[in-house]
Each structure stands twice: as structure tokens, then as C-alpha cells.
Amino acid sequence: MEPARGRSPLARRGPSAASSRQPLQLRLDTFLTEKSMKFEDLEAFVHVAQQQGFSRAASQMRVAQSALSRRVTRLEHQLGVQLLWRHGRGVQLTEHGTALLERASGLMAELKSIRSDLLAHAVEPRGEVSIALTPTAAQVLVPRLVLELRRDFPQIKLAVREGFSGFIHGWVAEGGIDLAMLYDPEPNAELEIVPLLNEPLYLVAPRERAGLPELPLRNGHVPVRALGALPLILPSHAHSLRSLLERLAAERRFALDVVNEIDGMRAIKGMVEAGLGYTVFSYAGVYEEVNAGTLEIIPLAPRLGWKLALVERKLQAQTRALAEVRRIILRQIHVLHERGFWQGELCAIVGA
């Protein structure tokens, strides 16, 4: 009878078979000194264990899930023990897996530190820098960043991920991202949060508003409380904007009328352009449509805004490549603010 697909053959033996073998410490020491040792197998195991599943680990490492499974299975066979219990919701470490993770995590961190130190002393900055940005920032900032890197630092390889602020915060906290730009990040003792810009938010409306409730304008502004009487098209709570608006509504004791919840800025803008509702966003997110005349922005009263910040882990290795990417981002934000793409007040570190 064939073994079940996706499961290690060791999983059928149960804990008694694994525990009857020689101590894991001895087998690990032998494994680490063998010429046939595959570091990628150890790396795969650490990522799967930390992410508690093959799917999340594969996404973080940007490799196929089947490849990760093969690497971990190969590692289990080389060590002669089961490292993970596989189940429908992910994986769980066995006793041997816990012991290996403790040693392997330190080994991988040391190897990464050695590599970073070597790159930091290189004559020319080189190496990979991973960044994550919101869709609005990515659309304008990434091309400018890549152009400057290609011109001045061709040995720096940039890896880019795009997502809503809530997702980005998780990526950088988990160690999958070197540098992130997001809105209103949650305080975290392990993260360095540098405020970049205090950006105003506006009510975004279609030019043609037939069929929509009339806006209660006062001196060209829409009262914040009126958001409870307007049909809104907003992202889900994973987006920092939605969390901000929900907190505002709770503080002022009214409920938002969310007629459609859409996790995609292009779709939201398309819905508003079609006259199906209103949304709330910054000028940077709708500047193309505003300039084209299909959308308009209306100030809110009192003023509502959010803070764009640069976020990274405090204890990560500081390479020259990372420093150059950070420096270019700060300068480009200043340039884009001067050109009117980003409105609001720059924080001191950006203008320096």
C-alpha cells in the first residue's frame, strides 16, 4: 500500500520509533559535519516551523510548496527522526523538531550575520534588500527606486512585495521583509518605526453623483459625522484605513454605512467612478483620477489624516545595501512631496 501523499513516511511510525534511536544531539552533530549536508534542507525546516505550515513558508521563501516538503522529508530521513506532525491546519513540532529548531535558528542567524558583515565591507554595496509597500506607494516609488539603483548601485538586488498595511506589518515583524512603508503601524518593541509624513484624508466622490445622497457641505468641507449617512465603499479591516475610520466612528458614536467591502484600490476607485458610492482616501491614491476629472476629493472637517512610516526590525543586520535603499527612499519621498504627489507635512527626518 502506498504512503499517503504529502506525508513523511516517518509519520506512520509514531513517537516510539523515533525515540528509540540514538540521541538527536549526536545525529545533528554528525549531520552538520557531513560533506553531503544540504543547508537548504535545514533552512526549509526552520521556515516551515516558524510559519507553522508549508503554505505560509513557501510564500515567504518564494519557492514551491512541494519543494519545501521534499527538503523537510529529506532532512527527516537523514536525521532518522520525525521533526513535524503534519495536520490539516499546518504543522506542529515534535520533541525532536523543537530541539533542532533551537540549534538551527541560531546557526542560520549566525550565517546570515557573517554574510551581512562580508557584504557590509564590500567596496560596492551589494546583496538583496527586500521591501514592502502599500499599493499607492509602490506604484510611484518603486520605479524611481529601481532606476536609481540600476544607475548607481547595480549590485543591489531589490525584492518588492505589495500589500495593505495590516499585512505588511505582519511580514516585517516575522522577519520576511528588511524595510517597509506602511500607514499607522502598531507599536512594537522589536520594530524601529520612523514617521515620514502626516497625510490628510479626503472624501472621494464621483464627478457625476446622480442617485447618490447629496453631500452636506459646510464651507467646502464634509463633516466627519456625515460619513455615517453616506454609502461607503471601503477595504476590509486588514487595511489601516478601515481601522482608522471604525475607531473614529466609535469615538463619535455613529456607524459607518459600508455598502461594499473591497480589498483592492483599483476596484474601489472604479466603483466610485461608476457612481456606486463614496470612499475615503489620500490624494496620492487617486491623483490620476482627480487630474483626469473622473473623481474629486473633498476635505473632511475636522481634518482627518494618517501617518506614513518606515519600519524595520531593530536587530536585523545593517548592510550597506540596506542603508543605500533606505537613503534613496527618504530622498524620493521628499521629491514626491515637493512635486505635490504626497500632501501633508513631512517629518523632520525626511526633510533633513
Rank of each mutant, 00 (worst) to 15 (best):
I177S: 01
D178A: 13
L179C: 05
A180K: 02
M181F: 12
L182N: 09
Y183S: 03
P185C: 13
N188Y: 04
L191C: 11
E192C: 06
I193Q: 14
I193V: 13
P195G: 00
L197A: 10
N198G: 13
N198E: 11
P200Q: 13
P200E: 06
L201V: 00
Y202K: 01
A205L: 00
P206Q: 08
P206V: 09
R207Y: 04
E208N: 10
G211I: 05
L215F: 01
P216R: 04
N219Q: 15
G220M: 05
H221V: 08
H221R: 09
V224M: 11
R225K: 08
L227S: 06
A229L: 05
P235T: 02
S240L: 14
S243K: 15
S243D: 15
L245R: 00
L245I: 00
L245G: 02
E246V: 09
R247T: 05
R247G: 02
A250N: 12
R253S: 14
V259I: 10
N260R: 13
N260M: 12
N260C: 09
I262Y: 14
D263V: 07
G264T: 13
G264N: 15
R266K: 11
R266V: 03
K269Y: 01
M271W: 12
A274S: 09
G275D: 10
G277S: 10
G277P: 03
T279V: 02
V280R: 06
V280Q: 01
F281N: 14
F281T: 14
S282A: 12
S282L: 11
S282K: 11
E289Y: 08
V290T: 14
G293Q: 12
G293E: 14
E296K: 01
I298C: 04
P299G: 04
L300V: 03
L300T: 03
A301L: 06
P302L: 07
P302M: 00
P302R: 08
R303Y: 09
G305K: 11
K307L: 07
K307M: 06
L308V: 10
A309T: 03
V311P: 04
V311N: 04
E312N: 14
L315G: 10
Q316G: 15
Q318N: 08
T319H: 02
T319F: 04
R320P: 10
A321G: 12
